[in-house]
Design a binder for these strands. Structure first.
Lengths: 150, 150
DNA sequence: GCATCCCTGCAATTTTATTGCATTCTTGGC
DNA sequence: GCCAAGAATGCAATAAAATTGCAGGGATGC
């Protein structure tokens, strides 16, 4: 893991669609050496995966919301049961168990408020183990970064 | 945007490193048709970008934290000033202005608590416009999904 | 019914990825 | 400082993939 590897990772985190030939050129290596480095980075797991990032607005998911959830019962099995419910939801893009005043934080990507309403029904109402939940609708996304600075 | 486009998007959101030939095979198109579809999806912006996702743990960023921030002064310029400060930080991977009890929510990816301490110094202490902030350390990541279901 | 437009597959061509191999570079031990 | 072992590099040949032109098929609107 040297300077060239870091350079490759930075390039790939921005745009992994460029060709190996172009990458080799940018870092000053031959295509074969460059390819072997990238393959090593993938095999060792530093590069987890290569994916397409869609534009949420163009897919109809125009609303984002953060929800903090406080459970009534905090045991491991109760926590797991709720998380399993939550992660099965398409609108839930992130789900974390956290320290602090609340137990779980969810990030939602929603089509509209109707979807939010239905989701609340499934996750938070009635017989579930929810003490309280607070919803923060996202007004502005200032940063949303998949890349990691090396 | 038909069934095949959706299939392509789902495939690419999982693994964009496969070849066009393989993709064409999976959706039952010829490579040339498949390529033209993917190019159209990129040109129209539905596919925003293709990126490498790194394994945070292998890059030394082993801690995650969510921070809710309440500002003293809520004017647009004050909000913007704080957000600009926050998004300039490498450890801040997501930053949102939100409705509700707090004004801003940050997602942090940290190397250690020392980095957190230093970050707090820069963003929250002293002369800044911070009324309060609450930190939730992530205990468990149950879901962290870049893909959008179509 | 017909013209138009879009999409498709095929085939030729260009570009890229991949691999073996000889050489160079780096590193650790002495 | 010198040598040996392992790792990384560039080159060249080969295989595979991407790209493009073109002709045919199907849907759409008039």
């Amino acid at each position: 893991m040297d300077r060239i590897d870091r350079k490759l990772l930075n390039l790939l985190q921005r745009d992994a669609s460029r060709t190996n030939v172009a990458m080799a050129d940018e870092v000053g290596l031959s295509p074969s050496s460059c390819l072997r480095r990238v393959r090593r980075l993938r095999k060792t797991g530093i590069i987890d995966r290569i994916v397409a990032i869609l534009n949420p607005a163009k897919t109809g998911r125009v609303l984002k919301a953060l929800v903090t959830v406080e459970l009534k019962l905090h045991g491991e099995q109760h926590m797991r049961r709720f998380l399993d419910l939550a992660i099965a939801e398409e609108a839930v893009s992130q789900a974390y168990a956290v320290t602090g005043e609340t137990d779980v934080v969810l990030m939602l990507s929603l089509r509209d408020m109707e979807e939010f309403d239905a989701l609340c029904d499934r996750l938070f109402r009635d017989k579930t183990n929810i003490a309280r939940f607070f919803t923060m609708m996202v007004i502005r996304t200032a940063k949303e970064e998949t890349a990691i600075r090396l």
